[in-house]
Simulated assay, not measured.
Amino acid sequence: MTTQDPVADDPAYATALDTAERLLGFRLERFLGAGPGEPDNAEDFKRIATIHAFGDVWPRTDHLDTRTRALVSVTIAATLGVLEPLRGQLRIALHSGATREEIVEVFLQVAAYAGVARAFDGYQIAAQVFAEAAES
């Protein structure tokens, strides 16, 4: 279902992209188009995933506020060892009011329950994001 302008054609997608920008501090569009060698439906996957995460899940603040949801997401990404998504989750956590100290505590928890090696891998990404935030 690839269209000429998926954002203009899908208000839910546009809203999700706006939410992502608010949480991350930058627009996602540059990451969402089909790249060289990707099939036509790659854009559909990226659009659907974006709508689900940033349109359906992140706005749910009745029971978990955005800051808490961000810390949970950092924990999950670090535990799974998905380092590029972790980078985004760390940015969201910082933009949502989580402190660097709270994020370090998350890595202590990851070390205790998912392993020290996994926590150190993730913390290297956190240190990069902390430095990036200090520069801006």
Score class of each variant (00 low, 15 high):
D18Y: 02
A119T: 07
H95P: 09
M1H: 05
L17D: 08
G122D: 01
A42Y: 01
A131R: 05
G122L: 08
T15M: 07
A14I: 05
L108V: 02
F54N: 00
I92H: 09
Q4F: 12
P85T: 11
P11H: 06
P11Q: 06
L71S: 08
I51S: 06
P6E: 02
Y113F: 15
E105G: 09
A70T: 10
L108F: 08
T79L: 10
D62E: 13
I51L: 09
A16N: 07
F45S: 08
D65E: 14
D9N: 09
P59E: 05
A34N: 13
D9T: 03
A119P: 10
L83Q: 12
L86E: 09
E29A: 14
N41Y: 12
T79G: 15
P39R: 03
R60F: 02
I92P: 06
F54Q: 00
A8K: 10
A20K: 04
A12Q: 13
D121W: 00
D40P: 09
D44S: 10
A16K: 05
G97A: 08
A134H: 04
E84Q: 15
R47W: 11
A117M: 07
R27I: 03
G88W: 15
A77H: 12
I103E: 03
E132M: 05
G25D: 05
A53M: 12
P11T: 01
Y13F: 12
A20I: 02
P11F: 11
V129H: 10
A127N: 03
R118Q: 06
V110P: 13
E102D: 11
I51Y: 00
F54L: 01
A126Y: 01
Q124D: 12
A131G: 05
Y113P: 01
T50Y: 00
A78V: 01
R22Y: 02
L64A: 07
H52I: 12
E43R: 15
F54T: 00
A114Q: 09
D5F: 11
L24V: 09
A77E: 13
E135A: 15
G37Y: 13
P36L: 14
G33L: 10
A134N: 07
G35C: 06
F130R: 01
Q124I: 00
E29I: 02
R118F: 03
T68A: 13
M1G: 08
I125Q: 01
Q89V: 04
E132V: 07
P59N: 02
A34R: 15
A77Q: 15
R91V: 02
E84G: 11
M1N: 03
E43D: 02
E105F: 07
E132Y: 15
V110L: 09
F120G: 00
T66W: 10
V57G: 04
P11N: 03
E38D: 13
K46Q: 06
S73F: 03
A12P: 02
L23W: 07
A114L: 10
H95E: 15
Q4N: 08
T66A: 11
T2Y: 00
T15K: 11
L90V: 06
L71N: 08
F130I: 02
E101N: 12
T61F: 02
G33V: 00
T99M: 05
G81A: 11
S136V: 14
A126I: 00
